[in-house]
Computed example of a mutant assay.
Amino acid sequence: MEILPSIGFVCALFFPAVGSVLGASAAGMASIAAMKKCFLRGEPAPFILIAFVGIPLSQIIYGMILMNSIIKAADKILPITGFLAGLLGGIAIGISAVYTGKAGALAADAMGETGKGFGFYIMVMGILETAGLFVMVFLMAILK
């Protein structure tokens, strides 16, 4: 039972990291395709496409903050609480990162085709990212 919080804090970082890589790679591949479309039309590619690639990476930071909260609270909580907070919280944050990246992929495609709508696309990605942020904050409140 003593090892459960340790497994939990590893999961709190692992799953958001995996989700961030999956999300950023989806957005990155779509950004490259959008750049190609621009180049084929003889237009410069909007540098702002890179923003869509980087946004899912912030979920790693949320995972790290959750991990640190679990480590700090390990003496005050039941071992199963630390385990479940890390496992389920990490998975939820990771899923948020994946879908933030998928939205970024669609945003890159639309931006590459139209050159318009950046603010709207960022807002959608921000809303999806907020789910991961909420998970981190709410679990931190439970761990105090």
Results as ranks from 00 to 15, higher is better:
Ala92His: 00
Val18Arg: 08
Leu22Phe: 09
Val18Ala: 00
Ser20Tyr: 03
Ala103Trp: 03
Ile55Lys: 03
Ile80Cys: 05
Leu106Ala: 14
Thr100Gly: 09
Ala131Lys: 10
Lys76Leu: 13
Ser58Arg: 01
Gly126Ala: 13
Gly28Asp: 06
Pro5Ala: 14
Gly8Glu: 03
Ser69Met: 06
Ala34Ser: 07
Leu78Met: 14
Thr130Gly: 15
Gly104Thr: 05
Ile142Pro: 00
Leu78Thr: 13
Leu143Asp: 10
Pro46Met: 11
Leu128Ile: 13
Ser96Asn: 07
Pro44Ile: 13
Gly90Tyr: 01
Ala73Gln: 05
Gly89Asn: 08
Gly104Trp: 04
Ile93Asp: 03
Ile80Val: 15
Lys116Glu: 13
Ser69Leu: 09
Ile3Phe: 15
Gly86Phe: 03
Thr114Met: 10
Met136Pro: 02
Phe83Met: 12
Pro56Met: 02
Ala73Arg: 01
Cys11Arg: 02
Arg41Ala: 15
Tyr62Lys: 02
Phe138Pro: 00
Met136Cys: 15
Phe39Asp: 04
Gly23Val: 02
Phe138His: 06
Leu66Gln: 01
Met35His: 08
Leu40Asp: 14
Gly115Thr: 08
Gly112Val: 00
Gly82Cys: 02
Ala141Arg: 14
Ser20Ile: 05
Ala27Leu: 05
Glu43Ala: 11
Leu143Ser: 10
Ala74His: 09
Ala92Thr: 01
Leu88Pro: 06
Ile7Met: 12
Thr100Leu: 01
Gly94Val: 06
Ser20Lys: 03
Ile32Ser: 15
Lys36Tyr: 13
Asp75His: 12
Leu22Trp: 09
Gly8Ile: 06
Phe14Trp: 02
Leu49Lys: 02
Leu78Glu: 12
Val137Met: 15
Leu128Asp: 04
Gly63Tyr: 08
Phe134Trp: 06
Ile32Thr: 15
Ala24Arg: 08
Pro16Met: 06
Leu13Pro: 04
Met123Val: 14
Gly115His: 11
Ile70Trp: 07
Ile61His: 04
Phe39Trp: 10
Phe9Trp: 15
Tyr99Leu: 04
Arg41Gly: 09
Ala12Thr: 04
Val137Ser: 07
Gly119Tyr: 07
Ala34Arg: 00
